[in-house]
Design a protein around this nucleic acid. Structure first.
Length: 409
DNA sequence: TCTGGGGTCCTATTCCTA
DNA sequence: TCTGTAGGAATAGGACCC
């Protein structure tokens, strides 16, 4: 999808049409989650600190993200894509890979399917999208990028919408691209490749694999060498199971008060637990993540013998972990996540092992709490330790525009 | 410029066990 | 019983993606 979050905001507020709109990052510590092409013409980009975005485009309209709304539109998009093939692999909310091999006889050539999908998305969602067609996910992904509009100081040039890379022309398509175009090459890897004098995919293709492996490691080196040759055997996999579920927040101001941090841990553990239970999941490994004022990251994790899915159980481990970490110098970001996931049927209450509250009673309470929150919002009910001066603490949306809004009623 | 939040994957190190 | 070693799991951190 083209500028997805921003496009949805413009769709929901016609007063924003034609304006530079920036989603997210309204606080001092925020970054741009998405922006319209009008904002991109000023040099604003996703992931850019909002302070910088404001400098580049002082007249931009900053709006908070509405994640649940994007999720809703994403579901509608998914339904449209499903009309072309059941083999749809979502990548985030606004992208997906489709394997249309089995649909050719019924729906025509891939390029025909692409144009039809584009028309349907435009007609039913009033949103723009760009589609790349190729024989692998890598080529399709890069082709879709080439299909997108381009915004620069000179203005906004509409993209072709659909770009097809025919069989046999993958090499010619890839060679002139910068190495950064390849999946898995970010600033760090790009820097190492530049050290080798390699800046384009064409140059990368001539580099011996052993040289690449020495520079960036076995797995990534071999993978990158294959990608540069246009070899990407990764299939389209619908319904990839989640491997971890987490929640993290950057605070408006650094926190060095341990009591306050533990209160946040309780709330985040509860939030992760709700997400797990909504997806019938439970996990064995609990991880706590801290980011200090100097951006140094620290993680501590612990693996349990049984999978857990309640805020109390996740929180118990997270509190233990936080207790081993130094917070006196001030914490910028705090996160709690759960991995080593399994389906919830296999999960038991940790308190059952440790000898706590009757697990049946606890399950009843947990179910009831979920029901109350579903109806009245997250702030409606919580544990005593989550209570701050102004009631049960839920994230301030000015600081964390990502979660769905917490109703106050 | 000065860096969010939700994730995945990879690598190196440490610890435990055979 | 002690030591060395190899392999696997756990742990911690880094890079990357949308």
């Amino acid at each position: 999808m083209d500028a997805f979050f921003a496009a949805v905001e413009v769709l929901d507020d016609p007063g924003l049409v034609g304006k530079p709109v920036i989603v997210g990052g309204s606080g001092a510590r925020g970054v741009v989650a998405s922006c319209t092409y009008e904002a991109r013409a000023f040099g604003v980009r996703s992931a850019m600190p909002s302070v910088r975005a404001r400098q580049l485009c002082p007249d931009a309209v900053f709006v908070d993200g509405h994640y649940s709304r994007y999720s809703e539109v994403s579901s509608q998009l998914h339904r449209i894509l499903q009309t072309a093939t059941p083999l749809v692999e979502p990548i985030g909310l606004d992208e997906a890979f489709l394997d249309v091999t089995g649909s050719l006889r019924l729906l025509g050539e891939p390029v025909t399917i692409a144009h039809r999908l584009r028309r349907t998305v435009s007609a039913e969602l009033s949103l723009g999208c760009s589609i790349g067609v190729g024989r692998s996910k890598l080529i399709a992904k890069l082709a879709s990028k080439a299909a997108k509009p381009v915004a620069s100081r000179r203005g906004i040039e509409p993209g072709p919408g659909v770009v097809v890379v025919p069989k046999g022309e993958e090499g010619a398509f890839l060679r002139p691209l910068g190495v950064e175009a390849l999946w898995g090459v970010g600033p760090a890897t790009a820097g190492r490749l530049h050290d080798l004098g390699v800046t384009t995919v064409g140059q990368l293709r001539t580099l011996p694999v052993e040289v690449l492996v020495r520079k960036i490691g076995r797995a990534q080196g071999e993978r990158l060498a294959r990608l540069a040759q246009g070899i990407d055997p990764d299939p389209v996999v619908p319904d990839r199971p989640a491997k971890s579920v987490g929640h993290e927040e950057t605070f408006a101001h650094d926190i060095s008060d341990a009591v306050q941090l533990h209160r946040h841990v309780t709330r985040m553990a509860e939030s992760v637990a709700v997400h797990l239970r909504q997806n019938a999941l439970a996990g064995r490994t609990v991880t706590v993540k801290l980011k200090y004022a100097d951006f140094a990251l620290l993680t501590r994790s612990h693996t349990l013998s049984v999978a857990v899915a309640t805020g109390t159980d996740i929180g118990a481990v997270a509190h233990e972990l936080l207790g081993t970490m130094d917070v006196a110098s001030g914490v910028r970001l705090l996160g709690v996540s759960v991995s080593a996931l399994e389906r919830e049927q296999g999960a038991r209450q940790l308190s059952f092992e440790l000898g706590g509250v009757d697990p049946t009673r606890r399950q009843e309470v947990t179910t009831a709490v979920d029901a109350v929150r579903a109806r009245f919002g997250r702030a409606a009910v919580g544990t005593a330790s989550m209570v701050g001066e102004s009631g049960i603490e839920v994230p301030d949306r000015r600081q964390s525009p990502w979660g769905p809004p917490a109703p106050t009623g």
